[in-house]
Simulated scan of single mutants.
Amino acid sequence: MTGPHPHTYRQVEVAGDQPYTITIGPGLLAAGHADNARRLGQVLRGRHALVVSDSNVAPLYADGVEALLRAAKPQLALSRWVMPAGEQEKTLARFGECLDALAALGATRDATVVALGGGVVGDLAGFAAACWMRGIDCVQLPTTLLAMVDSAVGGKTAVDLPHGKNLVGAFHPPRAVITDTTVLRTLPDRELRAGLAEVVKYGAIFDAHFLGWLAAHAEALLARDDTALAEAITRCCEFKADVATRDPYEHGHRALLNFGHTFGHAIEAEQGYGAGRDALIHGEAVAVGMVLASRLSTLLGLASASDGDRLQALLQRFGLPTTLPEGLEAGALIARMRLDKKADAHGLRFVLLDGAGAARVVAGVAESSVRAVLEAG
């Protein structure tokens, strides 16, 4: 892995009560580079660090990250905890194991959790950091595109319950996010495409011109071109940073980031969070959910059918599923949605489109309308 050149990386500043910097570019986690070690060392405030990773990522990158940490702080008490890979592992039991690892390290209140992995690792590690001694630092080192543009940014941390996704969690902004685009070269094609679903989401709800940019650069993104990826990730992080700064606890505008997620989370929960052979992973479920949400927008008279068609075509261009998987019953999915965090006393709540690049939160959506969209597929 080559090291970064100062002119090849970008930075996004996230404001708010706990400001932090997102650094994006190739080679930022390459071992043996003084700049990389210094960058990590600057955000480590204490003498303890726990690297949290999973069984897919740790063999590839944990040794290099630990080498950077030791180079930055030779006296650092450093430990590693590796969880099995997969959304089905984002449980309270694994969360407890992560806390046990912090206890075994003797982590004090100035310790740092270093989250090295995708969204599952980032969510669980961030939640552990939020809870250990009522809150310690977490540095996010995302290794999937989905985590780079979404879950590593904004401070939402959580684990799943059998009843639903992300039901137990906390808001806990990271100390820093360091995004090395070269790690995406080892990401499976399916995971890359799943991350592109979240990239498309930002264009769908905030910026129709970005949708056009994505269509024009689809081949470069699928080919993992560092420049195209860094541009897409930077734009998404700028969107999310703006929203998270204005609405840190998701009381209003930030809820727009859940576009496609009410349907998507119901699909994931009903399929057992990717445990089944044919189950969708998160980004795939969100892709289907965005198309269903766009169809619901049209049914309720908010957006034209052509807006949904354009969105579906772009998702298909990235090789993503856009129709409801077989074997899922509308009533069961609606029951999952009733428990979703986005439901409230007025009933089901959805992020719906007013057109390409514009969205709103709509509460009290009739279940009959949702059922009609689900049964149409």
Rank of each mutant, 00 (worst) to 15 (best):
K165P: 02
P174H: 11
V168W: 05
G119N: 08
P174C: 00
N166S: 12
A147E: 11
T143Q: 10
A129Q: 09
R185S: 15
A128P: 00
L184W: 09
R134D: 10
G154D: 08
V120K: 14
I136A: 02
V149D: 06
P162I: 07
G169H: 12
A170W: 04
A129W: 05
V153L: 01
V120H: 11
F127S: 00
L184R: 04
T157I: 13
V121L: 04
S151Q: 09
V168C: 05
F127Q: 04
I178H: 03
L167K: 01
Q140E: 06
T157D: 04
A176E: 04
N166D: 03
V177S: 07
A130M: 08
M148H: 07
M148A: 15
N166P: 11
F127N: 00
V149A: 00
V149C: 03
H172M: 09
L161K: 08
A170S: 12
L161P: 00
G164Q: 12
G164I: 08
A170Y: 01
T179Q: 12
T179S: 14
V121P: 09
T186H: 06
A130S: 14
L141F: 11
I178N: 08
P162K: 01
T181I: 14
A130L: 02
A176T: 10
G118E: 03
F127W: 08
W132A: 04
G119S: 09
M133Q: 15
T144P: 13
V149E: 04
P173S: 07
D160Y: 14
V177C: 10
H163S: 08
L184C: 09
G135D: 11
L187D: 12
P142V: 10
H163E: 15
G118L: 07
